[in-house]
Amino acid sequence: MSTTTLTIAAKAPAVAYSSVIAANLVNASSSDESINFEFIDEKDIEGDSVKLTNDGKILVGQLAILNGLADKFPLVFQDKEGSQKWLKIALEKLTVKNFKELAVDLEKLDAHLNFRSYITGYALSLGDVAVWGVLRANALMGSILKSGVYVNVTRWYNFIAGANESFEKSVEMVTKSVNELRKSAKAASSNGKKETHKA
């Protein structure tokens, strides 16, 4: 069996939660593939926040990784095609940290969820994973979701994580790994070494 590793830049402006969740969903599925995690104490990795390596093949960035995993595990990630529009909106728009700009796309997402329980279809899709992870990584979103101003977005966000434990588990894994990385970076700062942490 080949080895697959997801490498996450812990100091990236937005942690690649969508990719971490996707990898954990693969690990929790009935496929016998197991993806390893590696957190590095850097702002970026090959110019992006995340990288997936598998037998010398390398995917860089969340779009490539999410689509690559969806190709390989179509049963875990439903409706890859129908999710593309929302992958784009998530990764290009919902990452912004300017509230006025963000509000425009949150309104679109809220309208999209008037008559939908999932981003597409009637089961967890690739779009749900992408959008949820990007919103979780956006520092503005915590209070926006709590306020319930976008009622459909808040309901959907709570439902996605509430119905599937891989989401919150991924967040916990990132928090724990980043903390351990900081601790070991502090300890190693005397001899100037950069540390990595394998989760």
Binding site: V151, R155, W156, N158, A163
Partner: peptide
Amino acid sequence: LRSSTYLLGNE
């Protein structure tokens, strides 16, 4: 159902 996907929550 405004704040809940199913009547009793997430299931």
